[in-house]
């Protein structure tokens, strides 16, 4: 028996919205400790990793580990039928399920919707991602990071991110010209202004803005985002989801030929 009930179903809707442009199909692994998912984009330069802890669910039961192969597009179609205030319950009682049941219930418990989504058998291509001590970690407003990426992507396809002890600089060079946005360390009480820099070693890395803009679809999941970088390593962009877990994106850096 597997059953997972989310009090705030809208979080699940937002997660699926955040990843649906990046990955087409995913294996969700359910275990006693919660749900996890890892998937790469078709070019294998970006990866999404989701972890949801059992404690963050209103009800959670998973008697034995199961893998749920899902089409994100089809999952998205079903989740469109859930209201933003609904609870969402995922359920299956088969050991090797061919479908996953969904229950959506509104706050007054006056409307209950039930769907079943056919599952797919997918090759798992899971990568071992080591726990890394990143040499530059930036925590800032997710909306502000999203705005910077969107603005710069009209000038260039790539952005260079350079850190120092005091600031982080986002630079672009394009056919029309060049520019940069520098954000300084700011210990404001307001989330929207706050910028936390933890710089053990400065880094200078270049990334494709197209992917960063896709990651930023997760902006509604968290008011802050953390950018984790080490020289010659993939960027890790993390959105923490309250008590529930985290949504992480990894992106390979651009390198000179």
């Amino acid at each position: 028996m597997f059953e997972a009930k989310l009090q705030q179903g809208v979080i699940f809707k937002k997660i699926v919205d955040a990843i649906k442009d990046l990955v087409k199909s995913v294996n969700i692994d359910a275990s006693t400790s919660g749900l996890s998912m890892q998937a790469m984009d078709s070019a294998h330069v970006a990866l999404v990793s989701l972890k949801l802890n059992e404690n963050g669910f209103k009800d959670y039961r998973c008697d034995r580990p199961i893998t749920l192969g899902l089409s994100i597009e089809n999952l998205s179609k079903i989740l469109k039928c859930a209201g933003n205030d609904d609870t969402i319950t995922l359920q299956t009682d088969e050991e090797e399920p061919s479908s996953l049941k969904f229950f959506f219930e509104n706050q007054q418990a006056s409307k209950i919707s039930e769907f079943s989504l056919n599952l797919m058998s997918l090759d798992s291509e899971s990568l071992g991602i080591p726990d890394t001590d990143y040499s530059s970690v930036i925590q800032m407003s997710s909306a502000e990071f999203s705005r910077i990426c969107k603005e710069l992507s009209s000038i260039s396809e790539t952005v260079e991110i350079e850190t120092s002890k005091e600031s982080v600089k986002f630079s672009v060079q394009g056919d029309i010209g060049a520019g940069s946005i520098t954000v300084k360390n700011n210990q404001s009480d307001k989330d929207v202004d706050r910028v936390d820099l933890q710089i053990d070693q400065p880094v200078k890395l270049t990334f494709a803005l197209r992917y960063l803009n896709m990651f930023n679809k997760a902006v509604s999941l968290s008011s802050t985002v953390s950018l984790n970088m080490s020289e010659e390593n993939p960027l890790m962009v993390e959105y923490k989801i309250d008590d529930l877990g985290s949504l992480r994106f990894y992106l390979a850096p651009k390198i000179s030929d």
């Binding site: 790469m40 294998h44 330069v45 990568l127 390979a252 390198i255 000179s256």
Partner: peptide
């Protein structure tokens, strides 16, 4: 010109 390696260059297959 800049290129981009696959993530499998950085992370091992499991």
């Amino acid at each position: 010109n800049k290129n981009q390696n696959s993530l499998t260059t950085y992370f091992s297959n499991q």
